[in-house]
Design a protein around this nucleic acid. Structure first.
Length: 640
DNA sequence: ACCCGTTCCA
């Protein structure tokens, strides 16, 4: 069968005649014959190509079967995937569209991101006296939850209860999801509790809703309420724990899943790899990588990206690079993972070269790409290049810089000491592009460069956005004033923080030894080998002082005497983690430490010497980037 | 005739 190609199909397409009726000779009483099977099977075979679908549509018009509800239905569904405007026009040319046709176009709008159009169409359906079925309701609820249209969702709920569709399973699932996404957990729970046969899917939806809002224990309660959990349910559990920062619990769950004999799938592995990335658990990550091959996991783009991310965030940028080079098909996310990884390791030139390579391959950068590239510029001190790229975002790639990108620019200017410029930049970009993170970064730069004049202006501005300040901002302000010796101001911000019920995020470092993550807080005495750890630390203090290390007491900012300051510094969490690493691993083993805050000058200076004295490579990931210490030097060249 | 819940990079 050849495809009839009309010269200007699209032009004629929507002048549909009103005369469509089957003549007696073409129909009999069998409903199945009341459809143009030829057109439908043609559409089945040519679903991917807009031109082909258009010409089949033309053929239907010629045959006079273009109002056949089955033909229109298939056409609208295909057009929805190919060209939403075609779908809309065809819909409006259809006489008395039935509920199926409404469903297809509503689904089309949803996948196109036009949620309000989907909702409007559903409302219009009511006015045309077309009665909803369970499918169209689930479709419009999908639009409601993505649009967070809680009010309309409630109207639909009332309608559904009246119409008798209230007991439908898929509708109930969507209501749980809608209420869950909108933060109405009690309503979500009510729907969940009313489902007569709560299966694993309903439990999974309810669980994910709790996790979305940080209600970890409630989510676990729902999970435990099931007798048997399947792969997806376990995965939702692991993902929920990861999202809520319960990384070790997530890994425990993964182990338990294996004990119970439930096969993980590629989604499970992506979640587990994310936990490894955040923990810096390289050995475990490597083991999982090997294990994935045994589980016949599909290595799709997301899985590959998760692996690249894991290796680079765990400090093994070479392995990340090898994986990236091996990828046959690379999309924008693959490049983003690698660019961000290189930036994290301070490999600015490599990151920017990769960005150029990506452009050469014709891959369009997105907003995340630029965060990575600008971060790379920041770590390399490449100010002018950063401005060039920043400007090109909108002019060349049509991407409006958001708050994150503006933050990178402030960071870059601050780091190289162009503080006045950075301040003017913030003034220029408008309040909607300024956040406390950005002001903190500039204030930190002012402190490092000893510019109290700009610093005070920034501090004033930062303290004015107290409504959305976190512990980092308060500590920054307190430390800034302390560095000027203005102890009363310093104390005031600490008090404000305590009164506001905001807890200081404690410095925490972790190190992986034999697949176990050991965590240390500053001055931590919980570890069972604490005696040996502190003995090692004392030895290191002694040896590094011989090498010329002198504790820079001004970085410890309490109003206490110098000896006390030295003591406070001496037990910073990263030092404990390194001491433990030294006593628990073979000589020459690389130590990898992950710290949740930024490393301080003093620890940085000391670790350089520790690496030299012990002939170890020491890799530290802090909040911002990696530091590779070796033989008395750091890969960041003391610039971070 | 429309299809259940879980995924990386800032």
């Amino acid at each position: 069968m050849s495809i009839l190609v009309l010269p200007s199909v699209t032009a004629n397409l929507y002048n549909l005649s009103n005369s469509y009726t089957y003549s007696k000779s073409k129909t009999n009483n069998d409903q199945n014959l009341r459809r143009d099977t030829e057109i439908i099977s043609l559409l089945q075979q040519n679903r991917k190509n807009l031109k082909h679908v258009e010409s089949i549509h033309g053929k239907a018009i010629k045959k006079g079967t273009e109002q056949d509800p089955f033909v229109v239905f298939d056409l609208v569904r295909l057009y929805c995937k190919l060209n939403i405007d075609h779908a809309t026009k065809l819909f409006h040319c259809t006489h008395n569209p039935n509920v199926y046709l409404y469903t297809s176009l509503i689904d089309g709008f949803v996948s196109f991101g036009s949620y309000s159009a989907a909702i409007a169409l559903y409302a219009q359906m009511g006015h045309k006296n077309v009665f909803p079925d369970s499918y169209v309701v689930t479709s419009v609820l999908k639009a409601c939850l993505l649009q967070r249209a809680l009010g309309f969702g409630r109207e639909v709920h009332a309608q559904v209860l009246k119409s008798g569709l209230g007991l439908d399973r898929s509708i109930a699932l969507k209501f749980i999801e809608l209420y869950g996404k909108c933060g109405e957990l009690e309503d979500a729970r009510k729907v969940f509790d009313k489902i007569p046969e709560r299966d694993v899917v309903a439990h999974t939806v309810m669980m994910a809703s709790y996790f979305d809002h940080g209600m970890v224990e409630e989510a676990i309660g729902v999970f435990d309420g099931l007798k048997t959990q399947d792969t997806v349910c376990w995965t939702a559990m692991i993902h929920g724990l990861v999202r809520n920062g319960e990384l070790n619990r997530a890994l425990e769950m993964f182990r338990e899943m294996q004990v119970k004999g439930v096969e993980p799938n590629e989604v499970t592995f992506v979640c587990v790899l994310s936990a490894c990335s955040q923990l810096g658990a390289l050995e475990l990550g490597r083991w999982i990588h090997i294990y994935m091959h045994k589980c016949n996991v599909k290595f799709n783009q997301i899985v590959a990206g998760a692996l690249i991310n894991m290796y680079s965030r765990c400090g093994d940028i070479d392995e990340a690079q090898l994986l990236f080079d091996d990828m046959k098909v690379k999309d924008v996310s693959s490049y983003n993972s690698m660019i961000c990884g290189l930036a994290l390791h301070g490999m600015s030139i490599e990151a920017i070269e990769l960005f150029r390579e990506m452009l050469k391959q014709g891959i369009r950068p997105n907003s995340i790409t630029f965060v990575g590239v600008l971060n790379a510029c920041s770590h390399g001190g490449l100010v002018e290049l950063a401005f060039e790229i920043f400007q090109s975002m909108e002019t060349l790639y049509g991407i409006k810089p958001d708050i994150e990108h503006h933050g990178c620019m402030v960071d870059i200017l601050g780091r190289v000491g162009r503080l006045e410029e950075a301040y003017n930049f913030i003034d220029r970009i408008g309040a909607q592009n300024v956040d406390d993170k950005m002001l903190c970064s500039l204030l930190s730069a002012c402190k490092i460069h000893g510019n109290s004049e700009v610093g005070e202006r920034v501090a004033k501005r930062l303290s004015e956005c107290s409504s959305r300040m976190d512990s980092g901002s308060y500590m920054m302000l307190s430390n800034f004033y302390a560095s000027l010796g203005r102890w009363n101001f310093a104390a005031e911000f600490r008090e404000k923080m305590e009164k506001g019920g905001i807890l200081k995020e404690p410095g925490c470092s972790s190190i992986e030894v034999n697949n176990v993550i050991h965590e240390f807080l500053a001055g931590d005495l919980r570890h069972h080998e604490r005696r040996s750890i502190y003995r090692k630390l004392e030895e290191l203090n002694y040896l590094t002082k011989l090498e010329g290390y002198s504790p820079a007491t001004e970085v410890a900012l309490h109003d206490i005497d110098d000896k006390q300051k030295e003591l406070a510094l001496a037990v910073h969490s990263e030092r404990l983690a390194i001491s433990y690493g030294l006593i628990s691993t073979e000589p020459h083993t690389t130590l990898r430490v992950v710290k949740n805050l930024r490393i301080c000058d003093d620890c940085h200076a000391m670790i350089k010497l520790v690496a030299k004295i012990t002939s170890r490579k020491i890799v530290v990931r802090d909040r911002n980037r990696f530091h590779h210490f070796e033989n008395g030097h750091c890969s960041c060249k003391d610039y971070w």
